[in-house]
Each structure stands twice: as C-alpha cells, then as structure tokens.
Amino acid sequence: MATNAAVLESTRPKAAVHTASKATPQPYMNSYLAGIGLGLVLLAAFVIMGRGLGASGAFSTLVSSGVAAIAPEHAAGNPFYSEYVGDGTTSPFKDWLVFEVIGVFLGGFLSGTLSGRVKWMVEKGPSITTRKRFYFAFLGGGLMGFGAKLARGCTSGQALTGGALLGAGSWAFMMCVFAGAYAFAYLMRRQWQ
C-alpha cells in the first residue's frame, strides 16, 4: 500500500508534464450511465426504424462488393456474396447498416475528441511487442469476422439487439461469446496483462 502510493507520487509529475501540452484525457463515463445511453439509442432504432443496431453486416457488404468488383461471376454464383451485392438496381452501399456504421465512426471520433482521447497508439499489455500484437489483432479479427457470419450477427446485431428483443438464439449466442472469450483468456494473458 505504502510503496504503491510512493510509486504513484513519483510518476505523477512526469505524467502531468507529458500531457500538459495536449488535452488531458477525461475519465470514462459511469458504466451504468453509458449502458442506459446505449440502451436508449437501441430503443430509438427499434421505435424509429423497427430494427436494431449492427456492425458486421456493413463489412459483409464491403467484402461482397469487393469480390463482385474483382470477380463478378464468382460473386454471382455464391449466395452469400450475391445477397449483399443485390440485384444491381441499387448500389449495395445504399444500405441502412452501412450508413449506421459510418455514424459509429463519426460518433466515436466525436466522443473521443470531446473527452481528449483521440491519440495514435497501440492497445496492448506491457509484455508483448507491437508486431505480435498486430498478428493477434489480425487473427482475432479474422475469427470475429468468420464467427459473426456464422452466427448471423455480432455483439451489436445479436447480443445487444437480439438480447433486448429476447431472441432465443441471440441469448444462446451471447452466452457462447463469453464462454469462448473466457476459454481463450488464459492463453492470451501475456498480450493484455
């Protein structure tokens, strides 16, 4: 306890000097308040649009359109791609989720700017190199992309949206997300701690 306080004291002046030139990052919002805010946004989507939030769907549109641009016949012959590409009468990017995800980028930037948290950096624990962190980030993203497609949605579309609407599959999915993450947490401890 005493040593801990001493360490804090010795690092404090340095940290203050370092951040004094830039905006000091604000503390995060109270978790329950942020949760209520998020819940009200989700409720607004239900009331206004009759649908919930999402994220991974917009990336499926991006991938499918990319495949269709490079190999149109290949994409047309694959029901997964062709569903996102559509019949060609309208642009596949003229899609609710695509616009919503553009908003997510904007909203995140707005919040980060207001709270002084926009900073070019790498999120990782102290005992892993940036290169290794990038490998794991790519691998994790890959599993996330694959898993989200298999489950027909990610933490936004299934867990949050389906959870609030009491969808049976969404709740099974949510439990499995936590189970999968906790199962691999020990293996990944050096990356984060």
Partner: peptide, 11 residues
C-alpha cells in the same frame, strides 16, 4: 459462431 467470435474477442 458465438464460441468462435468469443475467442476472436479476447485474441
């Protein structure tokens, strides 16, 4: 999908 996605989350 949930299990794969969960693994991807922590990785």
């Amino acid at each position: 999908g949930g299990l794969v996605l969960g693994a991807g989350f922590v990785i």
